[in-house]
Design a protein around this nucleic acid. Structure first.
Lengths: 131, 131
DNA sequence: CATGGGCCTTCCAGTCGCTGGAAGGTCAAG
DNA sequence: CTTGACCTTCCAGCGACTGGAAGGCCCATG
């Protein structure tokens, strides 16, 4: 399988797959002509990574997950801990974004949005109207 | 005011403030000794940016907001549109993260997390148990 | 007047995860 | 034999900083 084939199969751009090789994540052997020759297991790994990335795992998390994936003697506790940590980070991000969202929604609501310059959004960013 | 003073006043690291100068966001005059000499208006701008950044606005948004801030003939509609667009992006991010969160929470729940290798998280990343 | 410490300066490199583009090699079809 | 779709490498850039090295400036103390 050439890179285009695994790209189509995994849904990842070829560029990304080359990048994954560069960082040592999935390193296929080479054919005689210098083309990357992906084996079936390489394709599995790439699809594994694509799914993990879509769940927001970092590349380094993916590296760890991949080695757990390939370690048939793994403890599921290790996988679970990694996933829980990631979940906690996601929760933190959601909470941060929700705070922003609330503040922004409030400001949007307060602003007339007409041709006049008076604007509670600008006022707030400028330090808040001291009333 | 030297950079340390505006850093303390705005809560931004000096490094960041230098970076803002580099990208032309807040460019203070220089004192004879070469030090950045921040005027009061520069300090206001930096605090303005710090607040906008904490609401998640991008640097380019900050640039636009800053010019609206300084344009006393602005239309509040312009500020509102910018803010609404940003709010929509935040909402999109929240929704994406929530989807991830749901999937991760499900997986964490399903995984025993013991010393055995069987792991629904790995199974799912590997393509899902076709049952 | 020297010295020390805390500022300040510039410049370079790294972060994360790609993404774009240029320049060129390879392969299969017509 | 040419065309066009693939493949290769290498270099550069995104956003928004952040770290660190090497050196200059300023002020207080001895």
């Amino acid at each position: 399988m050439n890179i285009g084939d695994v790209a189509a199969a995994s849904g990842l751009p070829a560029k990304t797959i080359r990048y994954y090789e560069e960082i040592g994540l999935v390193v296929p052997p080479r054919a005689e002509n210098g083309y990357r020759a992906y084996r079936e297991q390489d394709g599995h790994m790439l699809r594994f990574i694509a799914r993990a990335r879509s769940l927001g795992f970092s590349i380094e998390d993916c590296r760890a997950l991949l080695s757990l994936y390939q370690d048939t003697g793994r403890a599921s506790a290790d996988v679970k801990r990694l996933t829980k940590d990631h979940l906690a980070e996601i929760d933190a991000k959601i909470s941060e974004l929700k705070d922003m969202r609330a503040a922004l929604a409030h400001l949007v609501h307060a602003c007339q949005g007409d041709q006049r310059p008076d604007c509670p959004i600008i006022d707030e960013l400028a330090g808040g109207k001291p009333d």
